[in-house]
Simulated scan of single mutants.
Amino acid sequence: MAEPRRPPGEGDGGGEGLGRSRGGFTSKVHLSADGRCRPLSLVVTPGQRADRTRFEPELEKIRVPRTGPGRPRKTPDSVAADKAYSNGACRAYLRRRGIRHTIPGKADSQAARLREGSRGGCPPAFDEKQDKKRNTVERAINKLTHARAVATRYDKRGYVYLGTVTAAALVLRLRT
């Protein structure tokens, strides 16, 4: 059976990894990080690609290293994400895998739930203490952009840029 075709730039660096967005002709680095701001997995996509479309593939790539012998874990203890991932599909995926999560709800979703009254359902659980740890991903991206090649993206091909970001992530991981 043939593998379905992906649009250029989708997946692990295939295509150019460039696309139009509000900021111009850009690419996105989707990143997951541990509590010490070290990258666990990353994917490069075109700039116009929505964040939530890469949520499941990004979590599938996570490998949490063990302190002792044994294979790395594929499931993180918990996930703290921003409002871009506040939808039913992402929450259902996390519940299916048994991963605790803290994702703030969007204002329009909360307003719609209130308008519905008792039919609006129960709001999703939200842990404010866990939500404060959400900045680790932003700090990890800031550390990655200290590498000039990652910040400016001079690479023409998507797979070359993915290699550049991966090398910067390895250096970051080895330093801490």
Rank of each mutant, 00 (worst) to 15 (best):
E3I: 11
E3L: 06
P8N: 12
P8Q: 02
P8I: 00
E10H: 15
E10A: 14
E10D: 11
G11T: 00
G11F: 01
D12G: 02
G14W: 02
G15L: 06
G19K: 00
R22H: 15
G24R: 01
F25H: 13
F25R: 02
S27G: 15
K28W: 00
S32C: 11
A33R: 00
D34T: 06
G35F: 09
G35H: 12
P39R: 09
P39E: 01
L40M: 13
L42S: 06
L42P: 00
T45F: 00
G47F: 09
R52D: 10
R54L: 07
E56L: 06
P57F: 11
E58K: 07
K61A: 15
I62E: 05
I62L: 14
P65S: 05
R66Y: 06
G68Y: 13
P69S: 07
R71K: 14
R71M: 03
P72Q: 08
P72I: 10
K74N: 04
K74S: 11
P76I: 03
P76A: 02
V79E: 03
D82A: 06
K83H: 04
Y85K: 01
S86N: 12
N87G: 14
G88H: 14
C90A: 13
R91T: 06
A92Y: 08
Y93A: 04
R96W: 09
R97I: 10
R97S: 02
I99S: 04
I99Y: 05
H101L: 02
T102M: 03
T102L: 02
P104Q: 07
P104R: 09
P104C: 05
A107E: 13
A107N: 10
Q110N: 07
A112Y: 11
R113I: 00
L114G: 03
L114H: 13
R115Q: 10
R115H: 06
S118H: 14
R119T: 12
C122K: 15
P124R: 10
P124N: 07
P124E: 13
F126V: 02
E128M: 05
K129G: 03
Q130N: 04
K132Y: 12
K132G: 14
R134E: 01
R134M: 01
R134S: 05
N135L: 08
N135A: 09
T136E: 14
V137I: 15
V137M: 04
E138T: 04
E138A: 06
A140P: 07
I141E: 03
K143F: 10
L144V: 01
L144A: 07
A149V: 09
A151C: 14
A151G: 04
T152W: 12
R153A: 08
Y154W: 15
Y154A: 07
Y154V: 09
K156D: 03
K156Y: 12
K156I: 12
G158Y: 00
Y159E: 05
V160R: 13
Y161I: 03
L162P: 02
G163P: 05
T164N: 04
V165Y: 13
T166A: 12
A169E: 13
A169I: 01
A169N: 11
L170G: 01
V171I: 10
V171G: 06
V171M: 13
L174V: 06
L174T: 09
